[in-house]
Each structure stands twice: as C-alpha cells, then as structure tokens.
Design a binder for these strands. Structure first.
Ligand SMILES: [Zn+2]
Ligand SMILES: [Zn+2]
Length: 150
DNA sequence: TGATACGTATCA
DNA sequence: TGATACGTATCA
C-alpha cells in the first residue's frame, strides 16, 4: 500500500469570503461550492486528491456520469421580443450612462423574458392550486349562508 | 425595493 | 483573449 504523497497545503485564506449570517447558511454555501466542479474550492480538492495519489473527481464523474452540476447557468435573451430586436443602444438610460461600472444592457434592449426573475412566471400550477382551494372555501361559505337563511 | 457595483459566464 | 451583459450582493 503506497503512502499518499503530501497534499498542496492548506487552501488560501481568501478562497471564499463567506459573509452569510448563520452557520447553517455557510454550511449550505460550502456544500454548493463543493458540488460546483469549476469552483476554486472544487479545483483545490481536485488538485489535492491528484497530488495525494487518490482518486480523481473528473474520472469518477466520467465513470458514473451522475454528478449533479450545480454550475449557475445563464439564461439567454429570447431574440424575438421588441427589445431583443432593437439594434442600437438608446444612449440615455441609466445602463447606457453607467455602462463601465454597471455592465448592463441598455434598458430599451433588455429582453422581456430576462426582465422576469428566474423563479417568477412559471408558477401556473401553484396558482391553479390556490384557485382550487379558494373556490372550495367559497363553496363551503356559500353553503353555510344558504343554511342560515333556511 | 430599486439602483448600483462587480464577478464572471458566454461567445466570437 | 476581450467584449458583452447576466446574476446577485449590497446599499440607501
Ligand atoms: Zn439605453
Ligand atoms: Zn427577448
């Protein structure tokens, strides 16, 4: 049994600035970052395992192909809405005037789809459930009112 | 809550 | 690589 070689040493202090409130939140944050395969933390762990002669996360992933990739994916503009079709910046909106530090697309060109928050908008099932509950309650109340007037 | 700043995903 | 601009922490 070969002895594992020494690792690359402790991770850099400033690898992550965890400025969240609770320990619980910090723990969750670390778990997430461990699962992001391109995060500095995952890269460090990968390097450590390789240098120590242990298994590689990449090969493990290649074999199992079940790694949950929590890498934050960016949404893309729809390319078809009015703002998307606009070709020139207005030059007068806050984003145009603050392009250097703001790093945002012109407000006149911001895709309608991307204006909505990611979780927002596709909750039709939830609203359907609320509607069902509401109508059920209305039905019960209505029956009670009918009974009272008998 | 909207405005702002900034890290960085994405693409050419 | 540099340019663009999405996502989000932070602030007021
Ligand atoms: Zn503009
Ligand atoms: Zn669009």
């Amino acid at each position: 049994m070969p002895r594992p070689r020494a690792g690359p040493g402790p991770p850099p202090e400033d690898m992550y600035d965890l400025s969240m409130d609770t320990m619980e939140a910090q723990s969750f944050c670390m778990q997430r970052k461990c699962l992001e395969k391109s995060s500095p933390l995952s890269k460090y762990i990968e390097a450590e395992h390789q240098q120590a002669g242990l298994f590689s996360l990449s090969s493990l992933e290649a074999i199992t192909d079940v790694t949950v990739d929590l890498q934050k994916k960016r949404r893309k503009k729809c390319g078809a809405c009015v703002p998307c079709l606009r070709k020139v910046n207005c030059g007068t909106c806050a984003n145009c005037l603050n392009r250097k530090t703001g790093k945002q697309i012109c407000k006149e060109r911001k895709c309608e789809k991307l204006k909505k928050r990611k979780s927002e908008g596709n909750a039709s099932e939830v609203w359907c459930a609320f509607g069902f509950i509401f109508l059920s309650l209305c039905n019960i109340v209505w029956k009670d009112i009918i009974l009272m007037w008998r």
